[in-house]
Amino acid sequence: MSGHYLWSYATYSPHITRKSAATRFFDLKMGPHDVLFAQIPTRDLVRLSQTCKRVHFLVNDVCFNITRLLCRFFGASGVEKFRQMQRRTGTLISGSMALQLFNRLTWRDSDLDIYVTRVSAPMAALFILQHDYKFYPRKSQDECIDAQLDASEAYKTPSYLGRGIADVLDFHKGSNKIQLIVASTDPMETIMSFHTTCVMNTITYDKAFSLYPWSTFVTSEALVVETVGAGQEVGRQKYADRGWALTHAMSASRNSELGVRVHRSVGDRFTWTISLPPLPADPLKKADSILSCQWELDCDGVKTFTAMIPHRSNGEMTS
């Protein structure tokens, strides 16, 4: 038990102000904090993390650890390099891996889905190849990545893709699979076109955002959002099987993340934001373009859909 630092009763003096038992527990360097945190529901944990610096660090380190999430894909030392690549290219993580970060779960066979612009796709693909992954082209794809990316620029939105996806490149290493999803325009628009709200989570180089945290992590609901492309029902069923109740009902409340025509933006009051450990400074750092992403949930009387709100580069909405 020598690794467990505990306040020493042997040296206790009643004249010295004694820390509370909770503080001493959280101060433990090798304490079983994971055992405690695992029992605490998400919303309680978030509120506990706001009590002091030490608890905030512990909760993020134990429960929402980006290195632990990604190390099986790039090794512990490669995760920071991956995040640096994200910073240079604006690459986003989404899909089930982003959901797992927030939900403190491990789905062993999950792929890593990363979203890039056309411009950034070659650099992201190179990074993946440098980490010993091999490109597995689909039947319709060129074996050369550069040639395939060139070819995909001419695609006319085939039915498999749609949703603002220009191309999907598959990389494998052992049992690990990385999907590089090339967005036709903005990766965030692709993510906002997902089939249900519970998967609308994304991780940038420095922050993780869950856009519908209350329904996803408190009430365990997933709003079905109309989207194009094949396989949407299968995708929704996967999350229903994982425990989310699929709903078609939006909220009439302006105080709900699922409210009809409630103006939303990444990082707004409905968003759950987790700041990730800082990376070394980079003078070439790019702006957080996803923070300018704005949208509303709307309904045409039959189906719910996400309406993106166009914005100017200076952040002002267009009229």
Binding site: R47, T51, K53, W272
Partner: peptide, 29 residues
Amino acid sequence: PEEIRKLFNIVNDFTPEEEAQIKKENEWA
């Protein structure tokens, strides 16, 4: 958080700026 601090006698050592940022990030809860 204020109630948890009181309950467990945890001292709030965030700076006002840090507390404001963390509150904003977790306002949803």
